[in-house]
């Protein structure tokens, strides 16, 4: 029962997110809109689990399964939206002519352009009136955090991994 409850709450969250994304006045950030959509189902699920099972393992299991499914879903939708691999696949599936080159389907300049707009939308960079792009304070913090993470994970310096080994 707790498992079905968790799955149902997740399905309701996905539907609520799809509806939220179709309402123009909500945030454009896909992750934030998902978190907004997940709040109410999460509270209802947790209340129901506690009311039914108290603090027994079923209550925690239901909540953790819900959290896991939500995290997996966020990973998948951000992957489908932003990953180079996913974009290559989607562009190729929309193309009818096998002779068309990938560069004309998915332009490198467009890849950068879209990402700059996305970084602007989440306030990591901004554009001055003279048209110059620079980091915001939040952007500087993000750079520091990722520099620390790169050190922790023992990644090579950015310049040398420009060719990129990542699937994502």
């Amino acid at each position: 029962m707790w498992f079905i409850g968790a799955i149902s709450a997740f399905v309701i969250t996905v539907i609520a997110h799809a509806v939220l994304r179709r309402i123009k006045m909500t945030t454009g950030n896909i992750t934030v809109s998902f978190l907004i959509a997940a709040c109410l189902p999460a509270v209802i699920l947790f209340s129901w689990l506690v009311a039914r099972f108290g603090c027994a393992s079923q209550a925690w299991a239901g909540l953790l399964v819900f959290c896991f499914l939500c995290q997996l879903y966020v990973f998948l939708i951000t992957f489908a939206m932003a990953s180079v691999t996913a974009n290559c696949l989607v562009r190729l599936s929309q193309n009818q002519d096998p002779e068309t080159k990938i560069d004309s389907l998915y332009e490198s300049a467009n890849m950068v352009d879209v990402r700059i707009d996305r970084l602007k939308a989440i306030n990591l960079i901004n554009e001055t009136p003279s048209g110059l792009i620079r980091l915001t304070t939040l952007g500087e913090k993000a750079v520091h955090i990722f520099a620390r993470m790169r050190n922790f994970f023992y990644h090579r310096p950015i310049a040398s991994n420009a060719g990129d080994r990542s699937y994502f």
């Binding site: 890849m111 950068v112 990402r115 990591l124 960079i125 750079v143 990722f146 080994r165 990542s166």
Partner: peptide
């Protein structure tokens, strides 16, 4: 791990930094 390793957006931020 993946974000800090090879994200294109993080690359843009690093270039600006």
């Amino acid at each position: 791990w993946s974000l800090s390793e090879g994200s294109y957006s993080i690359g843009i931020l690093n270039e600006l930094a």
